[in-house]
Amino acid sequence: MDLNTIWFILVGVLFTGYVMLDGFDLGVGALHLFTKGDTERRTMLNAIGPVWDGNEVWLVTGGGALFAAFPEVYATVFSGFYEAFFLLLFGLIFRAVAIEFRSKHPHSMWRKGWDISFACGSIASAFLIGVAMGNVVWGIPLDTNHEYTGTFLTQLNPYSLFMGVSTVALFAMHGNIYLIMKTEGELQEKLRRWVKITIPIFVVCFLIFGILTPFVCPQIKAAFIDRPIPLIITFTLALLVVANIPREIHKGREFNAFLSSCGCMTFLMMTFGISVYPNMVFSNPDLANSLTIYNGSSTDKTLGFMLIIAIIGVPIVLTYTACVYYIFRGKVVLTDESY
């Protein structure tokens, strides 16, 4: 295995970590307005309060790794998707501000306004993440210099928009399961009823997306022909762990249900990675202009040096994340100092 492939896997691991961790934050935001009453909404906010900002470290780390290992991919994607990423950044910032400002004033209109901001920022962020990934699979117009030649509207193709919707559904399910794990009493029972809705919605989107992709994306169809076994295995495992979620919730094993949801995201990201490898960004319609792990990477010397940094840095991030979740384990308890 060469350094380019190792860094392809490492970047995928970092972004998978972000999707698993910040995914439930965004999912909680997507469900936020469906609750009634200040206490329930405060409980939901405090379920993610101690961890949401640490979860976004994985996005920064993944972006930094992409910049270091595949600078041309980073330059093409971030310049071509400039408007979309600006909107994503705006949504993430506005969501963070809403979390911090909501409980600074007791007036109902003040809190309702920030509740709406929190939900809209979360949904928009999840949707834009899905749209960006959809464009990577669908392909974007690149010239022979690997420069983006399309517009913002080019990125809003039906395939990418549907992937955006599917991502919102996935994060809503993930956030729903996390909230069941962190709450108790009447709110938890309500969330248990919600999971009977959020899981089927995601499964329908997942199945449609999985069946549709090989037919509308020739490059993904070719990947299925070239390496069908690993793709079928990861796709099937993703379905199986989703099917295990209702079983674990019914038996009162919320943590196992959450692990199953994390497993679903892991297998989906593995399916995504196996489907596009060795490409990083497909060029549509001319696949010859696609960015790969070879024509978009740094030199071997840089990749080798950065791998040493990653071997040191990634365990630090993992340790920090594990410590935070261990310290703030258990059910949410509201106090005067809570959000």
Rank of each mutant, 00 (worst) to 15 (best):
L307W: 15
I308L: 15
T149S: 03
D115W: 14
E147C: 00
A69R: 08
F282V: 09
L128D: 02
I220C: 00
D300N: 10
I274D: 01
V60L: 14
R192K: 15
V314K: 09
C217N: 13
I123D: 00
I312C: 12
I48T: 05
I308K: 14
D286W: 05
L187C: 01
N295V: 11
I245R: 07
M265P: 00
K301S: 13
L303R: 04
F90R: 05
Q188T: 05
F70M: 03
N135E: 01
V136Y: 02
A68K: 07
C120A: 14
N279D: 13
V332L: 11
P106F: 01
T319M: 15
L334C: 02
F78L: 15
Y74G: 07
A84I: 14
F162R: 01
T234H: 08
T234G: 01
T76S: 15
E56A: 03
P228I: 08
W138E: 02
Q188M: 09
G273T: 06
H250K: 14
K190Q: 13
S290F: 11
L318G: 06
N157S: 04
D38I: 08
V333Q: 14
A69T: 10
A65P: 00
F67E: 03
T302K: 04
A84V: 13
V77Q: 05
Y82D: 03
L303N: 04
T302C: 00
F78Q: 06
M20G: 05
V317I: 14
Y277N: 02
R95M: 12
T183P: 02
I245L: 07
L268D: 09
K190W: 12
L14I: 14
I249H: 09
V131D: 01
L66F: 08
P315W: 14
S166W: 10
F152C: 03
Y18A: 11
D25H: 08
M270F: 15
A288D: 10
I180N: 07
V324L: 14
D226E: 12
D336Q: 12
V136I: 12
G23F: 07
G130D: 04
F162K: 03
